[in-house]
């Protein structure tokens, strides 16, 4: 029983981490209809920059963090200015491929600037097992994962307020709803894109920092984007709650499957199980859990 709870808990925690990455995807997809494959590499790039700045300059981490946010905003601006502006009204698949190109660029720049060796991101995040849970319930829980879950919750709350209450948030929702209508009431699409890419960059930085603190900053960090994809299709591309719930379902499902189904078929099914789960799910609901209903007309 305890083992089962432990498994579910660690699945939930892992799920939160996936959700964080998926959030970045959803933000950009909602605001610009672009399926941003570079999100995973953005996580890597942000974490690399963060670790790199701290390593090279020896600044305390809050300053480095703020500087990294500045870098991510610059990336957002550059993406809008040099890429997206020229590709307005192109087909989705072209935009998708551009973001893959962008992923290569960011990866290359990150490697050239900061080197490709594994970096340790030590900013004093809690680590090790939680004694409290171990003593009272006899359950093993990583402190870092609890912390990550808290951060994610705060971040989602923050984003929700940002989207619902602020002026910019309203403009973002307007753009997500209808580009042309938003333009006609005087919302600048270009500014909105820069903002939304910056926010996605910020989310990427948070996700990258947490993943980096967990397993070191290295290339494999960019591969978590691949883990975020099934989360996305399960939750629906356009829904922020969907990203969270999808992440939790995938996280728990994956861990349970690894332990209870894995041994039967030979193990290491983590790689594809999430996809199969999402696929099976899509067959029932083609737009995902919370995705907007697809209405098709001729």
């Amino acid at each position: 029983m305890e083992f089962l709870i432990e498994t579910i808990l660690s699945g939930l925690m892992a799920g939160v981490m996936y959700s964080l990455v998926a959030l970045g995807f959803v933000l950009i997809f909602k605001a610009s209809g672009i399926f941003n494959f570079a999100q995973g590499v953005m996580c890597l790039f942000a974490a690399l920059t963060f670790a790199g700045i701290m390593e090279k300059t020896g600044l305390p981490w809050p300053i480095a963090f703020v500087m990294t946010i500045g870098v991510m905003v610059f990336v957002a601006w550059a993406v809008e200015r040099f890429v997206l502006r020229h590709l307005v009204n192109q087909e989705p698949i072209i935009l998708f491929m551009v973001t893959i190109g962008l992923a290569y660029v960011l990866e290359g720049v990150g490697d050239i600037l900061w080197g490709s060796d594994v970096k340790v991101l030590d900013i004093g995040l809690p680590s090790g097992a939680s004694d409290y849970m171990l003593d009272n319930f006899n359950i093993y829980v990583e402190k870092l994962e609890v912390f990550a879950a808290l951060i994610a919750a705060v971040l989602v709350g923050f984003l929700a307020i940002f989207f619902q209450k602020t002026r910019i948030g309203r403009a973002l929702r307007a753009v997500a709803d209808d580009h042309q209508a938003a333009l006609s009431v005087g919302i600048s699409l270009q500014t909105i894109w820069v903002i939304v890419w910056s926010v996605a960059g910020f989310v990427a930085l948070v996700a990258g920092t947490l993943w980096g603190a967990k397993s070191g900053v290295q290339f494999s960090l960019s591969l978590i984007a691949l883990k975020a994809l099934p989360v996305l299709i399960l939750g629906g591309f356009t829904s922020i709650p969907g990203a969270i719930v999808g992440g939790l379902i995938i996280g728990v499902g994956e861990k349970l499957a690894e332990i209870y189904v894995g041994p039967i078929v030979g193990g290491a099914i983590e790689n594809w199980f999430a996809y199969m789960l999402a696929l099976a799910f899509l067959l029932v609901r083609p737009q995902g859990l919370f995705g907007e209903r697809i209405i098709e007309r001729v």
Partner: peptide, 25 residues
């Protein structure tokens, strides 16, 4: 039943499953 990017991600299932299968069996 699935279209667009949903399908693209769904085909990734084939990618990962097949590679795993050839590794394991």
């Amino acid at each position: 039943r699935i279209k667009g990017f949903y399908l693209a991600v769904a085909t990734l299932a084939a990618q990962f499953f097949l590679v795993w299968l050839f590794n394991k069996v």
